Simulated assay, not measured.
Amino acid sequence: MFILSSILLLLFVLVSVGFFTLLERKVLSYMQIRKGPNKVGFVGLLQPFSDGMKLFLKEQVYPLNSNFLIYYLCPIIMLIQSLFIWCLFPFYFNCVSYSFGLLFFLCCSSLSIYPTIMCGWSSNSVYSMLGMVRMVSQVISYEVSLSIILLCFFMLVNSYNLMNFYSFEYWSWFIFISFPLFFCWFSCALAETNRTPFDFSEGESELVSGFNIEYGSGGFSYLFISEYSSIIFICMLTTLIFLGGDFYSFFFYMKMIILCFVFIWLRCTFPRFRFDKLMYLAWKCYLPMSLGYLIFFFLIKLLVFYHFFLLSY
């Protein structure tokens, strides 16, 4: 039953990635006052399936000067890494409850850098190499602030387990006690998932397609699925921490969909950031604020502990 529930979870994630791409194309078309996919099936509902068939049935080509084995393996490794992190999805029936879920998330999200390095290096292209270098520096920079922000809330919950956020849903949403920190988290999540306005690894205007420029057909689709599954997982984690962790209710998934819509909305609205401004934002703005909140939450925790210690005597 455990294996069956895990397979079902992965299948639902893959289907949700397909329909998330349909949602993105629909929202982009409405915001740009044009028609989106509407030919394949009723209002374009079969478009994700036709896109998947088209990508996986295309001929696979590869650069002659590439490192052939690593070039083929790294999209599969990136897909496995992005799907592996969904083991943290918090539900009771037939799934593992990780006592150190935070550490597992940080380890898995850190591993996403290595397939990107392999993609950029093995393609033997200047554009892919530049996109890889920019992505690595961006992800490493923003992962520091992301980890500290996560540590703040796990320290308040007094556990590293994601399931414990469920008990806090009934009396508080953490967005109300840390509203500025929510925007820092959301910006770091955009940079971590390489979304606009922080999509420097796929800078179309200067790098054509960035680190994945040499990939087509199946390899490109694996990279595409891994990126979008990471976006959906980040939206799930944001909803769980900031917007109430009642993951048994319908409203939990509605809040997830709204956050996915905001990711698309930002893509329509903001132009790409300048790279030096991106680094300035990470090290000079988000890192001091997240450290300040960490010290603040630690002092609150210390005062509460001291108060209960005095009451016990």
Score class of each variant (00 low, 15 high):
20 F>A: 03
18 G>D: 11
20 F>R: 00
27 V>L: 15
20 F>P: 00
46 L>P: 02
11 L>G: 15
40 V>G: 00
23 L>R: 06
42 F>Q: 02
22 L>R: 12
43 V>A: 12
13 V>I: 12
37 P>N: 06
24 E>W: 04
35 K>T: 09
36 G>N: 04
30 Y>W: 14
19 F>H: 11
27 V>I: 15
24 E>K: 12
13 V>E: 03
41 G>D: 04
40 V>C: 04
30 Y>V: 13
35 K>Q: 13
43 V>R: 14
38 N>G: 13
39 K>Y: 12
42 F>S: 04
42 F>R: 10
32 Q>A: 10
34 R>I: 02
28 L>D: 10
17 V>Y: 04
13 V>K: 04
17 V>L: 09
31 M>P: 00
17 V>H: 05
40 V>A: 14
36 G>D: 01
44 G>I: 04
30 Y>K: 13
30 Y>T: 11
36 G>Y: 02
28 L>F: 11
43 V>W: 15
37 P>H: 08
27 V>R: 02
15 V>A: 14
24 E>N: 07
29 S>D: 10
41 G>C: 04
23 L>W: 14
32 Q>S: 14
16 S>Y: 07
43 V>F: 15
41 G>T: 09
20 F>H: 04
35 K>C: 09
31 M>G: 14
42 F>D: 01
17 V>M: 11
32 Q>G: 05
35 K>L: 13
23 L>G: 12
43 V>Y: 15
11 L>C: 14
37 P>C: 07
11 L>P: 01
30 Y>H: 09
37 P>G: 05
32 Q>I: 06
13 V>D: 08
18 G>E: 11
43 V>P: 00
12 F>L: 13
41 G>S: 07
37 P>T: 06
44 G>V: 08
44 G>R: 03
28 L>C: 09
24 E>L: 05
32 Q>V: 03
39 K>T: 14
42 F>E: 00
17 V>C: 13
19 F>N: 02
34 R>V: 02
21 T>D: 05
44 G>C: 07
12 F>S: 07
40 V>N: 08
16 S>G: 11
36 G>Q: 01
29 S>H: 13
27 V>T: 15
37 P>S: 06
46 L>M: 13
32 Q>P: 03
13 V>A: 10
11 L>R: 00
12 F>T: 01
33 I>L: 12
36 G>M: 01
26 K>Y: 07
39 K>F: 11
26 K>Q: 11
40 V>Q: 06
32 Q>E: 12
20 F>Q: 01
40 V>F: 10
34 R>W: 02
15 V>T: 13
28 L>Q: 12
22 L>K: 10
31 M>D: 00
46 L>S: 07
15 V>W: 11
40 V>S: 10
26 K>D: 03
45 L>R: 03
41 G>I: 04
15 V>M: 14
47 Q>P: 06
21 T>G: 03
18 G>I: 12
37 P>K: 03
46 L>D: 00
35 K>G: 10
42 F>V: 12
42 F>P: 00
